[in-house]
Amino acid sequence: MQTPTIASSAQPTLTRGVRLQTDSKTGNSVLLFPEGVLELNETAHEILSRCDGRTVSEIIQALAEEYNVDLEMLATDVRETLADLQRRKLIELAELT
């Protein structure tokens, strides 16, 4: 699978009206939005909880420092997850200016 083209300098943020929250029933993270609930897997949770103004490369860097995983695989995972969330309009990718 081809890695989605997401700029390293892009800053992912939750789309207006989308909320990241812990589901008290399961302890897992969920995204809440109009008429919808998305239960997040661990990767998505780890990424989204770092979408606080950091760029894509900063997020990858932070995750790499925390987890002992192959950097290239990690970068692919992050980009694929972000691309999927962007397709669902749950995040927006602002370019660093």
């Binding site: 929250q21 589901d23 008290s24 029933k25 969920v30 809440l32 008429e35 609930v37």
Partner: peptide, 8 residues
């Protein structure tokens, strides 16, 4: 409702 697990 929240106690029951309702999110929306």
């Amino acid at each position: 409702a929240a106690d029951l697990g309702i999110l929306q």
